[in-house]
Simulated scan of single mutants.
Amino acid sequence: MTPFPFSKSPVNDLPQASPYFVSNFGYWSEVSNYKDAGVQFLTEFVRHCHLTKEASILEVGSGLGGGLVYWKQHFAPKLLSAINLPGEQSNFAKHLWNENDVKVKPFLEGGWEQIKTLPSNFYDYVFAVDCAYHFDPLVDFYKEAYRVLKPEGKLVFNMFHYEKDTKHTFPFILKLFYMPPNQISTVDKTKLQLQQMGFLIEHELDWTTPVIKGFIQYSQYLKLSLRIFGSILDKLTNSFQLSYHYYVVKKVSKL
């Protein structure tokens, strides 16, 4: 649920610094502008999964491409692969990678389902930055991430959750944010689902305050369209009692 899931608008509408162009919500801890918050999100995202140098990384939902540039420059991975929907963001990302000598192989333009074409037991990390809550069916994404990961490999992603396991009025409103209502569940259900697949939960952190509330507060200083988006996001998370979480799960043997 980013303001611009299918366009390169964040490049111009949010204060960004080349080459780390991103479209996440930002991580708002001791920072006051999106240029810093967007990059801090990338830092926090890999800090808890202990990203190592010379690793193989698959990013599903690579967006504007800045995340892969950042990880390439700071961690020197031996392989970068990515999947992203075709369109403005992917076109921008390809130019960005070329300009910064970042090799992404393969780069698959399509939905997350393209992961099914990739080999099993191949990647050290699968990243899904601010996008897994768009995937449907989500359980199939988890299964495919498990399949392509090496033993002890890690899936790292963000997810919105209902605070309580109750039915909500007008769930179709979530679709306006490209969130399939039937894919949103509670933390406990998600953790159980992942564990039953063979994942070990290393980290599950509530990032609602530093990410979502931080972005909502900052959006009030942006252009009108983003102020409106921030206001709607605030009402949506409150009405549906949504929280926003960060996960690091490791592939172990299935039960």
Rank of each mutant, 00 (worst) to 15 (best):
L194R: 08
L224I: 03
V139S: 07
V46S: 14
Y27V: 04
Y20H: 09
S9C: 02
F4Q: 03
K103P: 00
V104A: 05
S253V: 11
E30F: 10
V11N: 05
W71C: 04
M197N: 11
A93V: 08
Q16C: 02
G61Q: 12
G63H: 07
Y133H: 09
E44F: 06
D234P: 00
N24S: 06
F107G: 00
V148N: 06
S239R: 13
P10H: 06
W28Y: 11
L68H: 08
E88I: 10
H161C: 02
F45P: 02
A128L: 01
Y133V: 02
Q195D: 10
R227E: 04
V104G: 06
N84D: 15
K94R: 13
E204Y: 12
F127E: 04
N24Q: 05
F199V: 02
K94E: 14
P5N: 09
L174G: 04
F177N: 07
E59G: 07
E202Q: 14
D130Y: 05
G61W: 13
P137M: 04
S253Y: 13
Q114R: 02
I228A: 07
S23D: 10
E204S: 15
V187S: 12
N158V: 04
T209M: 05
E204G: 11
K78T: 13
S239P: 08
N100A: 08
Y142V: 04
Q241C: 12
T186S: 10
T190F: 09
Y244H: 03
F25K: 00
L222M: 01
V31F: 12
T190D: 13
S239H: 15
V39K: 15
F215A: 00
M159W: 10
L149R: 11
F6V: 11
G214W: 01
D13R: 10
F45H: 10
E30L: 12
K175G: 12
E152M: 14
F45M: 09
E88T: 02
E99Q: 15
K35L: 08
H161S: 02
P180N: 14
N24H: 09
L226P: 00
L242E: 05
K94N: 09
S56W: 12
S231M: 15
E204Q: 11
T209Q: 07
A37F: 04
V148Y: 11
K8T: 07
G214N: 00
K235G: 08
A145E: 13
S23G: 06
L51S: 13
P3Q: 09
K103S: 13
S62A: 13
G110T: 02
K53R: 15
I232Q: 07
S7W: 02
G153H: 14
L58G: 09
K167G: 05
S185L: 04
Y246P: 04
Q16G: 02
E144T: 01
Y218P: 00
A55N: 15
L85E: 15
K143C: 01
E59M: 12
